[in-house]
Amino acid sequence: DDVELRDGDWRVELKDADEEILRAVEEAIKNGASEQELRELAERLIR
């Protein structure tokens, strides 16, 4: 699993992620995405 989400800690570690993925995830976090939404976003972007 390349995506690590810690309970109560919104730092997201994406291994080997490019800047576009990181920006998309950071934007989702700023917009108040839930953990499930972040997982789905990350899975779509990593593929």
Results as ranks from 00 to 15, higher is better:
R39S: 05
L5N: 15
A24Y: 08
I29L: 14
D9I: 00
R44C: 05
I46C: 05
G32Y: 00
N31Y: 01
S34R: 03
Q36I: 11
E19A: 07
Q36K: 13
R44L: 05
R44D: 12
N31E: 08
D9G: 04
K15M: 15
A42W: 12
E40V: 07
G8L: 13
E37K: 03
E35M: 10
L14F: 08
V25H: 01
E26M: 09
D2Y: 11
K30P: 00
K30Q: 09
E20G: 13
L41A: 01
V25Y: 07
E13A: 14
R6Y: 09
E26F: 03
L45E: 04
D16V: 05
L38H: 00
L41Y: 01
A42V: 15
A17W: 09
L22F: 06
G32V: 01
G8N: 14
A24D: 02
E19S: 06
V25W: 07
E27M: 03
L45S: 05
W10T: 04
R6M: 14
V3N: 15
N31W: 02
V25M: 13
R23K: 13
E40Q: 10
E37A: 05
E4L: 12
D2R: 10
A28T: 01
G32Q: 02
E27L: 06
D7C: 04
R6S: 15
E4R: 09
S34G: 10
K15S: 10
K30I: 09
E27P: 00
D1Q: 14
L38G: 04
V3Y: 14
D18F: 06
D2G: 12
E26P: 00
D9H: 01
A17M: 13
Q36L: 10
A33S: 05
R47C: 07
G8Y: 11
L22H: 09
E43V: 04
L22A: 05
R47I: 11
A17G: 05
E40R: 08
E43D: 14
R11S: 09
V12L: 10
L38C: 03
E37F: 06
I29M: 15
D7W: 01
A24G: 02
R39F: 03
I21W: 05
G8P: 15
R23D: 03
E26Y: 03
L38S: 03
L5R: 11
E19L: 07
A33L: 14
I29F: 14
R47H: 14
R6W: 13
E19I: 10
I46K: 06
A28I: 02
E20S: 12
E35K: 06
R6L: 13
V25R: 01
E4A: 14
L38A: 15
I46A: 08
K15P: 05
R44F: 02
I46H: 05
L22W: 12
I21P: 01
E40M: 06
L14V: 06
E4Q: 14
V12P: 10
V3A: 10
R44Y: 01
G8F: 15
R39M: 07
A17N: 03
L5S: 14
D7L: 04
G8I: 12
L41G: 00
A42Q: 04
L22P: 01
I29K: 12
E35G: 07
E20T: 13
A17K: 06
R11P: 09
A42I: 15
L5G: 14
A24H: 07
E40L: 08
A28G: 03
D1G: 11
A42K: 06
E19C: 10
D16T: 09
L14N: 01
D7Y: 02
E37S: 03
E19P: 15
K15D: 08
V25S: 00
E20M: 11
E35D: 12
V12K: 14
V12G: 12
D1K: 15
V12Q: 08
E13T: 14
G32T: 01
I21E: 01
E4N: 12
E27A: 09
I29D: 05
R44G: 11
R23H: 10
E43A: 06
E35I: 12
E13R: 11
D2M: 11
D16N: 13
D1E: 15
A33C: 03
E20W: 11
K15R: 12
E4C: 03
E19M: 06
G8E: 14
V3K: 14
E43H: 08
L41C: 01
V3G: 12
R44V: 02
A42G: 04
Q36R: 12
D9P: 00
I46V: 12
N31Q: 12
V3M: 13
D18R: 06
D16K: 08
G32C: 03
L38Q: 04
I46F: 02
N31P: 00
R47Y: 00
R39D: 02
E40C: 05
L5F: 14
K15H: 09
L5T: 15
I29V: 10
D1A: 14
D1Y: 11
A33I: 11
L22T: 06
Q36T: 11
R11D: 06
E4K: 14
E13Q: 10
D16R: 04
E35C: 03
E26G: 10
E27K: 08
V12T: 11
L22Q: 09
